[in-house]
Simulated scan of single mutants.
Amino acid sequence: MAAPDGVASGAVRAAVPPVSLSPSRAGDFMQCPLLYRFRVIDRLPEKPSEAATRGTLVHAVLERLFDAPAAERTPPRAKALIPGQWDRLRESRPELVELFADDADGERLARWLSEAERLVERWFTLEDPSRLEPAERELFVEAELASGLRLRGIIDRVDVAPTGEVRIVDYKTGKAPRPEYAEGALFQMKFYALVVWRLKKVVPRRLQLVYLGSGDVLTYDPVPADLERIERKLHALWEAIRLATETGDWRPRPTKLCGWCDHRAHCPEFGGTPPPYPLPLAPAAPPVQGRMGAD
């Protein structure tokens, strides 16, 4: 799970230049630089979604299940955790009340919770938690590269074999991507692997994406050359973010994902106007004057 840096919450915070990069925010910039600005610079509020909130709930259940002894990590035990974790989630994020505000009879909420149960049950067909003892769960990691770029994120699960080999595991409540899109799906995992490599001087043996929506498991075994490539990519991304931050030039990048965006009212592609830029702009460089020729 990526670190929620820069995403607006109910509280209004003063705008500050970005100081770190997480997989989710890197993904935002690659998808649409203006979306990155709205989330990280302007911190515009976003409505909670049923799908994302269900994902948060399922992650919480799978994390808490490992508190139980191995023999008690069963589907009934996991499903029994759902109501309590849902209550805790609503207490920590009051804005979630609006998700089912118009659901007077509770039918939509019941269907939503049933889908969460199905996702949790499917996990048991993909992994056996009675045979797993994670070294870390919901692990916050942060590393500063030699360039000064700070990378951060939250890893769902870290497994360490008796031989010392590290496996990074991430749960996805959606469906696995088609093979031609697998590289994009692995970006987040390679990001985490790079952070672990720079922190621990160990290249993770395996990266594993567990797709609960479709019942698929995607694995990848990285090598240092992979992580060096992702490091170069992140440096290029950060340089583009730095330039946009200084100039205020955040270009929209229209795609089919625009239909899901909360910020169309502020987007020029949909006739909107972004809010006034809240950060100081770097002074424009003076034009370079060439020398006049003798003739």
Score class of each variant (00 low, 15 high):
101 A>H: 06
54 R>V: 03
116 A>L: 09
130 S>I: 06
63 E>Q: 08
120 V>H: 07
148 G>E: 04
171 Y>N: 07
231 E>S: 15
110 A>K: 14
244 A>E: 09
255 T>A: 14
116 A>H: 05
274 P>M: 12
235 H>K: 15
271 G>W: 11
84 G>T: 05
130 S>K: 14
229 R>Y: 10
293 G>C: 10
86 W>K: 04
137 R>D: 10
31 Q>S: 12
260 W>V: 13
92 S>Y: 00
291 R>Q: 13
258 C>V: 15
48 P>W: 00
221 D>H: 10
50 E>F: 05
154 I>A: 07
193 A>D: 05
191 F>H: 09
283 P>F: 11
283 P>D: 11
254 P>L: 14
276 P>M: 04
138 E>G: 04
83 P>N: 13
262 D>A: 15
109 L>R: 09
33 P>K: 03
158 V>Y: 00
202 V>A: 07
203 V>Q: 13
67 D>R: 14
275 P>H: 12
153 G>W: 10
78 A>S: 15
22 S>E: 09
207 L>C: 02
33 P>L: 06
281 L>D: 12
238 W>D: 13
186 L>Q: 07
259 G>S: 15
54 R>I: 03
134 P>K: 01
250 W>M: 14
205 R>D: 03
234 L>N: 10
195 V>Y: 06
175 K>E: 09
175 K>H: 08
233 K>N: 15
36 Y>A: 08
55 G>D: 05
56 T>A: 15
175 K>W: 01
181 Y>R: 14
252 P>T: 07
158 V>G: 08
196 V>K: 01
218 L>W: 04
2 A>F: 03
255 T>I: 08
214 S>F: 05
220 Y>S: 09
137 R>P: 07
191 F>R: 04
17 P>V: 04
124 F>K: 07
95 E>I: 02
245 T>K: 09
221 D>A: 15
164 G>T: 06
146 A>P: 00
68 A>T: 12
52 A>P: 10
263 H>T: 05
34 L>T: 07
18 P>S: 02
134 P>D: 09
129 P>K: 01
279 L>D: 03
221 D>T: 14
127 E>K: 03
284 A>R: 14
196 V>F: 03
143 A>N: 08
31 Q>Y: 08
9 S>T: 09
76 P>A: 06
228 E>H: 10
160 V>N: 07
277 Y>I: 13
113 L>V: 04
223 V>I: 07
247 T>Q: 12
112 W>V: 02
39 R>P: 06
31 Q>I: 09
234 L>F: 13
232 R>Y: 05
23 P>I: 00
172 K>Q: 04
179 P>E: 00
167 R>E: 06
158 V>A: 01
140 F>W: 10
155 I>N: 02
66 F>P: 04
10 G>S: 10
81 L>H: 03
133 E>S: 12
15 A>G: 03
252 P>H: 11
38 F>Y: 14
35 L>E: 14
196 V>W: 05
265 A>W: 13
23 P>K: 10
258 C>Y: 13
253 R>W: 12
53 T>K: 04
147 S>N: 11
147 S>E: 13
84 G>H: 07
209 L>E: 09
205 R>K: 04
203 V>G: 08
139 L>N: 01
292 M>F: 15
295 D>M: 11
274 P>S: 08
74 T>H: 06
112 W>N: 02
26 A>Y: 06
162 P>K: 02
201 K>F: 11
3 A>C: 02
294 A>E: 12
